[in-house]
Simulated scan of single mutants.
Amino acid sequence: MDTLNAILLGILQGLTEFLPVSSSGHLVIAQTMLPGFAQPGVVFDVLLHAGTMAAVMVYFRRECLLIASSPFRPAAESCPDRRLLLLLAAGSVPTAIIGLLFKDHVEALFDNLTVTSLMLLVTGFLLFISERFRGDGRREADLTLRDALLVGLVQGAALLPGISRSGSTIAVLLLLGVAGETAARFSFLLALPAVAGATLLSLRELSGLPPGTLPAYLAGAGVAFLVGMISIHMLLAVVRRKRLVAFALYCWLVGGTFFALSL
């Protein structure tokens, strides 16, 4: 894969990681359309996700700093941040279990356009019902252990290409009655441990990369970071204005089109 293709896929990743349309699904579709594209395992996809997660850490740097430092600050002032840290840790457990148990099976699906297209249709359904039946608007202080565990399970299922991680987790939180901006922020923060774990697991595959490939991969990750910063801002505005139905229609259109083409 050359640098131009890596940059184009980085732009695609940055746009689709946070907009609820499945970055993995779009990467599968795009990679099937690039002549001669090949990669060892899913290293490139993981590096692209690492780039967009770096965007989360920069965009929510204040929240990340408060959460990370909460165990070392006086309990009186850090109680809300410690509670959020525990919820994020709890939500990461089911994601990690699903990822470790089904990693090989999921990776095998990254070349399957039919499955990816069907999962995009599922993403569209989740977005549609969450917008139609979203709850009253619970805030961060109202999040429970049950919320965290359920969202962690959904995030684990979103390892499937075509299931939007941000879209599915935000949709479930909206259905649980969580306010839109709170749902988006918790979804972004919950992704950090999962992507960090996937990145660490994929590091051992770097030695198998073809010579000269790593610079192109890093260029793609860098572009994903820059575009991801813009996409985060866009999604927060979309959720706040209750416009997820438009993304549901988009997922149905893309999923339906490529499902038909894959048959």
Rank of each mutant, 00 (worst) to 15 (best):
A75T: 03
A76H: 07
A76K: 12
E77C: 06
S78R: 14
C79Q: 15
P80G: 06
D81M: 06
R82A: 06
L84M: 14
L84G: 09
L84Y: 04
L85A: 06
L87F: 04
L87E: 01
L88M: 03
L88V: 01
A89C: 14
S92N: 03
P94V: 00
P94L: 03
A96I: 06
A96R: 01
I97D: 12
I98Q: 11
I98W: 11
G99V: 05
L100D: 09
L101W: 14
K103Q: 12
H105G: 08
H105Q: 15
E107H: 01
A108M: 06
L109Y: 08
D111Y: 08
N112D: 15
N112F: 00
L113M: 13
T116S: 03
S117W: 01
L118V: 15
L120M: 14
L120K: 15
L121F: 04
T123Q: 13
G124C: 00
F125P: 04
L127I: 07
F128I: 11
I129H: 02
R132W: 00
F133S: 13
R134D: 11
R134C: 08
G135F: 12
D136S: 15
D136C: 13
D136K: 15
L143V: 10
L149N: 06
L149R: 15
V151E: 02
L153Q: 08
L153I: 15
G156H: 02
A157E: 04
L159A: 13
P161R: 09
G162T: 04
S164P: 15
R165A: 01
S166H: 10
S166I: 08
G167W: 00
I170K: 02
V172C: 05
L174C: 03
L174A: 05
G177E: 03
G180Y: 00
G180Q: 12
T182F: 04
A184Q: 06
A184S: 15
R185A: 03
F186A: 09
F188C: 08
L189H: 03
P193Q: 06
A194R: 09
A194L: 02
V195H: 05
